[in-house]
């Protein structure tokens, strides 16, 4: 499987407000995963583990995803765009303060994953404040690489 099959459809360079407090260990980063398809959510989990991260929570609907993000304060959030309850975009806006309400004081870097790959859809995701917009299908291996990069950049950020 080649790396170009997956890809990062778009990237925001904005970083979060600082290292997550949910980490039990300074050297390990944490993530919350949300996808209504458990099979895909599991692929994300595999990728997070491969990249050296800790999965704090896996949810299958948007509402509990937001709750867990606010409760667990992960470094990264991997969100499916179309989910019941709240969409990944709505969560993104709520967390990043792009929907009118103020941004969460602790804000994870959000990676949106979606099968909608039209440039407009990608732009909407980035405008909502997502760090990256990743097209489905994705290669777990390539996603792991990407996650390692994002987490690494977050750790080294001031």
């Amino acid at each position: 499987m080649t790396a170009q099959d997956t890809g990062t459809a778009g990237t925001n360079t904005a970083t979060g407000t600082g290292p997550g407090t949910g980490a039990t260990d300074g050297s390990v980063w944490t993530a919350v995963i949300a996808d209504d398809d458990p099979a895909i959510a599991y692929l994300m989990e595999v990728a997070v583990r491969k990249a050296g991260g800790t999965v704090l929570a896996v949810t299958h609907d948007g509402t509990s995803a937001l709750e867990r993000i606010r409760a667990e304060r992960p470094d990264l959030a991997l969100l499916d765009v179309s989910m019941p309850g709240m969409t990944g975009l709505q969560i993104c806006r709520a967390v990043c303060g792009t929907g009118g309400a103020p941004a969460d004081p602790h804000r994870p870097d959000i990676l949106l994953l979606s099968a909608s790959v039209q440039p407009e859809a990608v732009q909407v995701g980035l405008d909502a404040g997502a760090h990256s917009y990743i097209a489905k299908p994705f290669s777990p291996r390539a996603l792991a690489q990407r996650l390692a990069e994002v987490a690494g950049a977050r750790r080294s950020a001031p």
Partner: peptide, 24 residues
């Protein structure tokens, strides 16, 4: 069109992802 494309891609995501897991 978007919906069809989305609905076809979602199962393909699983197929391709798990194929990779098996191979890796």
């Amino acid at each position: 069109t978007g919906l069809i494309s989305h609905e076809l891609r979602t199962p393909l995501s699983s197929i391709l992802g798990y194929l990779e897991l098996i191979a890796d």
